[in-house]
Nucleic acid binder design. Sequence first.
DNA 1: TATTTTTATGTAAGTGCTTACGTTTGTATT
DNA 2: AATACAAACGTAAGCACTTACATAAAAATA
Lengths: 318, 318
Amino acid sequence: MKNETFSELKLFSFGNLLKKLGESIQREITEVCKNRDSRFDPKLFPVLYFLQKVEKSTVQKLADNLQITHPAVIQILNKLKELNLIETSPGLQDKRQTYSKLTEEGKELLNNWQELYSDIESVNKEIIEESGYDVFNMINSINNLLKQKNYKQRLDEKIKDRIMQQVEIITYNKKYREDFKQLNYEWLKQYFVVEPEDEKLLSNPDKFIIKKGGQIFFARLNNEIIGTCAAIKIDKYTYELSKMAVTEKAQGKQAGKKLALSVIGFAFSKGAKFVTLLTNKKLFAAINLYKQLGFEIEPEEVKSNYEREVFRMTLLLQ
Amino acid sequence: MKNETFSELKLFSFGNLLKKLGESIQREITEVCKNRDSRFDPKLFPVLYFLQKVEKSTVQKLADNLQITHPAVIQILNKLKELNLIETSPGLQDKRQTYSKLTEEGKELLNNWQELYSDIESVNKEIIEESGYDVFNMINSINNLLKQKNYKQRLDEKIKDRIMQQVEIITYNKKYREDFKQLNYEWLKQYFVVEPEDEKLLSNPDKFIIKKGGQIFFARLNNEIIGTCAAIKIDKYTYELSKMAVTEKAQGKQAGKKLALSVIGFAFSKGAKFVTLLTNKKLFAAINLYKQLGFEIEPEEVKSNYEREVFRMTLLLQ
DNA sequence: TATTTTTATGTAAGTGCTTACGTTTGTATT
DNA sequence: AATACAAACGTAAGCACTTACATAAAAATA
């Protein structure tokens, strides 16, 4: 009965479980040490140990080697200084540095602690052996995995994937005509002005896009149309990706990417060789997306009948 | 080069490694969550989750189920209350209790978070699978080991063993005569007064103990005599454990136990059937040790020629 | 050479827990 | 019924770190 919830949340709390286990072990070690010798604080030990090995060290070097932050090192060094176990001196060549080294008292105490240190190691070793697991390799293995791709990245990707899967892409239907117009208006007004040219096309998608062999895609999230994009037939081998618009509030849900992929897929299925598009220098996010999908910027600046600072990008379908 | 010290201290820092790994995972989870929705704090989640499952709960019940202390629960509940995700009410039968339950807003939010929760679970699962280790069984296994015998106990035992091994037991030699006398004087003065009877025996151990077929043992730690104990021959079948004295500053190093064991071993090797001793009611630690070694209190109160509140304990050698 | 950037250190404050302690209420014992 | 004991909750403070920020010196760059 008890711990049932605990076990349900086990996978979610994975990090916490590791943390708690480690903490409880450290807590008990600290307690035992304090009982033996009020000065023996296991958290001080690694710093002392390292100082013994290298004679003297800067703060940064300690932080790097002990895998803790430099403020943590400084706090430990301060305690050691209070206990007269180390002494510090400013760096000679580099005046920013602070070197720390053991005092005679520090060396002696460290020597006395060596035995307790070994005892702790023995107990840890026994526990690990009794557990029957190669705990260190496990820790290493997970650390390496997270070094290759850190947790944040993994989780961000997972979330992106999930959201992308939630966005459905559907094809044109008369009932979406108003959505097509609205989404594009919203977008145009944000960046430019709506020109007569736009007005004409956006009001008659059947006539200017569908009937001419093109297609219009819509991104739907929870039964709401959040984005659109058209594939306009230019010639047998070329389709234009155009009228891409995703509503502000649904940004970041990968709808644009999914829409663009649909256009590309459509063009490909029609046997096209190129997908081309016009875009504007200031639309960084869009340009990035197109690049990511393999579009390349045409070298010559294009003169379009739209009064914008535009250029052409083209994707070669293999 | 780097991390070398780290790896030298690996076994010592076992708990810390686990803790750090867990912490770093939790940190990144928290960061990602905060970016998505400033209110989604993964540390709040288990409490919400549990409240959803049981409808309402007391503080203590939450603490038990989530394996955290009750102040931790209260702190989380306070945050949740600030966010209007829960509401609390005092217990009806038991007025000490405080019940918490989700508000409508809390239920809705929890529902929204469900997806992010699943994403975190998926990432954790992937990491664990990629690592190739059965991390949960490992954690369980170690937790169980520590439940059977906690870390503190293990470490205390390890230290005791080590110290006991360091104490060497050696047999009588004239050069230790002064140690024998001094140790016993120190001890006698602390608890009683030195009587003529004592004086006589302590000054002539060769004559009164060794020559009569007994033996005197000394405990040596780092070339210093820290304790002594005599085996005095009473008759063919009986030796008396007597003149046990361990110097104050070396208490707790198991010297007494080791000395007593030496006396018992000596008596056994001489073919004795009993080891007997006189002790005083106020010497609790000593009595405990003797009991631990198998000595049993003789039922009748003994009249000794020492003016102390004494009784006899005897060990039957099998 | 002047200026920007980076590095080493230090300080302050935050975090997510914990232990320690106090108050109120309930339960057990005399 | 009176009293001792235990439990539930709450508050305060501590712990072992962390992030965030500040400062001065060194290194890189223009």
